[in-house]
């Protein structure tokens, strides 16, 4: 109980976490070393860094899809494992991961089905979710009939369908073209504001990180460590924001941190 009240505002808290793949073998990889990270409820955090620096690994530790070699990962004051079992988070991958034998609404209803919701409840919720991602008229379509951006929106709807408090996204817009990507960013911010969900967002794109985040976490590689944390405050963002000097300044700050990382 005490711990709970202590961490009331803490969505994720990571202490001295290490992750070693294939320990004690020839292909041992120190993927993460001494990670300390706190994410407050309602935050929008981006993880950025060179390829292979451990962004996905860090996200998987939070998701309890991987177990840290050392240190601890807490999600809403519980162990990551408990949080996964309680389904405190939803997950979105780079490739939408929609099941092509299910139509759009059946895909969105998948996690609800697993939770044993009644059909009527599921349908009502998937309808709400389709409104949220603005795909109402596509509910009976199959994933292959949708564009990449639409598929990602379905994937987001599926991740949010059971109202998790945390949304984990691994390069969700990585496979989209630039225009669709910018549009999806605005949509994601709207959804973030409407639902109040905490977001952890892995990206390779500097402007994307700067535009979306309240905090950008820059990682350095081999072994993966947190290099710096950059706080961004662009207020209410629209497409217009991309032309603001504040946005330019934020991207510059992130870029310089990444240059410092590359320089070693």
């Amino acid at each position: 109980m005490r711990e709970n009240s202590e961490n009331l505002e803490e969505a994720v808290s990571i202490r001295a976490a290490d992750k070693v793949f294939n320990p004690d073998s020839d292909n041992e990889v120190q993927a993460l070393l001494g990670i300390d990270l706190d994410i407050k409820e309602g935050d929008f955090i981006s993880l950025i860094g060179p390829s292979g620096c451990g962004k996905s690994t860090l996200l998987r530790l939070i998701a309890d899809l991987l177990v840290p070699t050392a240190g601890e990962v807490k999600v809403f004051g519980k162990t990551a494992n408990q949080a996964r079992l309680d389904q405190d988070y939803g997950m979105v991958f780079q490739h939408s991961g929609l099941f092509d034998w299910r139509d759009v609404s059946a895909n969105i209803e998948l996690p609800l089905e697993l939770k044993g919701w009644s059909k009527a409840d599921r349908q009502a919720r998937s309808k709400e979710m389709l409104e949220l991602v603005r795909l109402e008229e596509f509910k009976d379509h199959y994933p292959r009939q949708l564009s990449g951006g639409m598929q990602q929106r379905v994937s987001i709807a599926r991740a949010l369908s059971f109202e998790p408090r945390l949304l984990l996204m691994d390069e969700p817009f990585g496979a989209l073209d630039e225009m669709t990507r910018e549009h999806m960013q605005v949509e994601l911010l709207r959804i973030w504001r409407e639902t109040g969900t905490t977001v952890v967002f892995v990206t390779h794109s500097i402007p994307e990180a700067a535009f979306l985040s309240s905090k950008v976490v820059v990682l350095s590689p081999r072994p993966g460590r947190i290099h710096s944390e950059i706080t961004v405050d662009l207020g209410d963002r629209t497409d217009q924001t991309r032309e603001d000097p504040e946005f330019f300044q934020a991207t510059t700050e992130v870029r310089e941190a990444l240059r410092a990382v590359e320089a070693g």
Binding site: R60, A63, L65, R84, L85, Q87, Y89, G90, M91, F93, G97, F99, L110, P111, L114, K115
Partner: peptide, 9 residues
């Protein structure tokens, strides 16, 4: 896909 199912416990 398998991870997705795992994430739903």
């Amino acid at each position: 896909d398998v991870e997705l199912m795992r994430s739903y416990a």
